[in-house]
Amino acid sequence: MFRDAALIAGKDLRIERRSRVTTQQIAPFALLVLVLFAFALDPDRGVLGRAAAGLYWLAVVFCTVLAVQRSATVEVTDRAGEGLRLAGLDPGGVFLGKAVAVGAQLLVLEALLTIGIAFFYGTKLHEPMLLLATALLATIGLAAAGTAYAAVAAGLRVGTTLLPLLLLPVLAPVLLAATRAWEAGLAGVPGDAVSWLELLAAFAVLYIAVGVVGYGTLQEES
């Protein structure tokens, strides 16, 4: 399973390196969202600084929708996913591989967005280790849940409009927990973040389990 996962992750990341969708489309979109938040919330009143953690994670969640949609589309185009099934790869491994590739892209986006909030919103990054741990756990959860739901919506003619409706309520706990943990970190009170990190970890484990067990059925159905 893990060998298959490594193969698929390598494949997806290679596709991304060549097509540059993440770097040329999703990353600029992420920064654009940060700028748009500044238009919506008056930058002079300090709202941006106080809401930085929430806005950051909202931007990450939006990017997740785009990234997993892209990741699932790759398999639907030219029926590439059927090729994977014919190759006899373990479905759990395929799921893990795709989730790892999405997670890696999200981490790059998060790094970029972190620079973005520090630069645009003037956020001071206290407790960097806590911020990093939160980002890692949240990213695993986002990538796992996103990959599972994108596989459901992929291949449907209206999949692009359906996916946000299905996925965003599911990602709500990650948005909530990651935001609170970051708020605690940015405010310099890391103790408050512990229970939120636990929640993020539970979410990640749960969706990895759901994906590994259920991905075979998802592939059959599409």
């Binding site: 459901v152 299905l166 309520p169 706990p173 927990a177 749960l206 059925t217 159905e221």
Partner: peptide, 18 residues
């Protein structure tokens, strides 16, 4: 059925977070 079954996971975890 897949979405209906996955919702069982979603509802309690949402509840807990909130």
């Amino acid at each position: 059925a897949i979405i209906g079954a996955m919702a069982v996971v979603v509802v309690p975890i949402n509840h807990m977070a909130v």
